[in-house]
Design a protein around this nucleic acid. Structure first.
Lengths: 136, 136
DNA sequence: TATAAATCCGAGTAAAAAACTCGGTCAAGG
DNA sequence: CCTTGACCGAGTTTTTTACTCGGATTTATA
């Protein structure tokens, strides 16, 4: 019952881009360094997100990636479905008589993911980072 | 984002027992045959459910398993948590700033699973089997 | 025009988890 | 005492995940 690192890193990636929306393209390397992830692996994750039209790339020196849509127009579901394929709580072909339960579960998961935009995630993140301030 | 076969088979197992609640103990073999599963594998699944007090076993010839509680007192969450451990949408130790999302997701999943009893699943199953009748 | 910083691309691999399998011991009814 | 069926622990196979690697291509700038 886990989201794989694909979906999670993908979200981190786009949230990072969303944090820098207005500026120049951001190279993967800088994100990889900041988040402690492998640049090569991130390449694999951002490719489908580019194909799906969520980010644009700028090649060559001083290149990088930029959001192709507003941060309120991209949802967590967009990212996770693009990277992990459709949410399937059990294998699609099983018929165990419990389909109603699996459908409900899938529906609820989808509803949560669809209700959250990159902007929301950015807000969450800043809240959670900001709260450290009170403990200093 | 999947429930493993442990949780799924475990549910099938208990729903099967629930369907026969009033009677004599049911041997795993009969369930395994009926559902097309491996008896040996089911043994591994029912052991934790017995330890957790959801089923009772009767050893020896004419033995088998019986529900240890009423079918309205056991929820899908009981079974799945027993067999798969706590629902973790991402690894517990990650701190990616998105914890709020993961918590919400976990909460929703748990809520669905906790709201469904064996009796409910039995009803679902009979509804879905019954509906074939109309197509004959 | 050379160089360096990037994206782009496909394949390969290592580690972990999932899904069983196997071989046997113990208990109880007939 | 034989058969049925629970109990137990280890081993194996398969699948999935999470990367790694080696390059080719593009482009701003010195």
């Amino acid at each position: 019952m886990k989201i794989s690192t694909k979906g999670r890193y993908g979200l981190m990636l786009l949230v990072d881009l969303a944090a820098n929306e207005c500026g120049s393209p951001i190279p993967l390397k800088s994100i990889a360094d900041r988040q402690g992830l492998s640049e090569h692996y991130l390449e694999q994750l951002i490719a489908p997100l580019r194909n799906a039209g969520f980010v644009k790339s700028v090649r060559g020196a001083y290149g990088g990636y930029v959001l192709a849509k507003g941060k309120r127009e991209i949802t967590a579901a967009d990212v996770i479905l693009t990277l992990e394929g459709p949410i399937e709580v059990v294998d699609a072909q099983v018929s165990d008589g419990l389909e109603e339960l699996w459908d409900t579960l899938r529906g609820q998961i989808l509803q949560v993911l669809e209700s959250v935009t990159l902007q929301d995630l950015l807000d969450m993140k800043q809240r959670s980072e900001g709260s450290y301030m009170y403990y200093i």
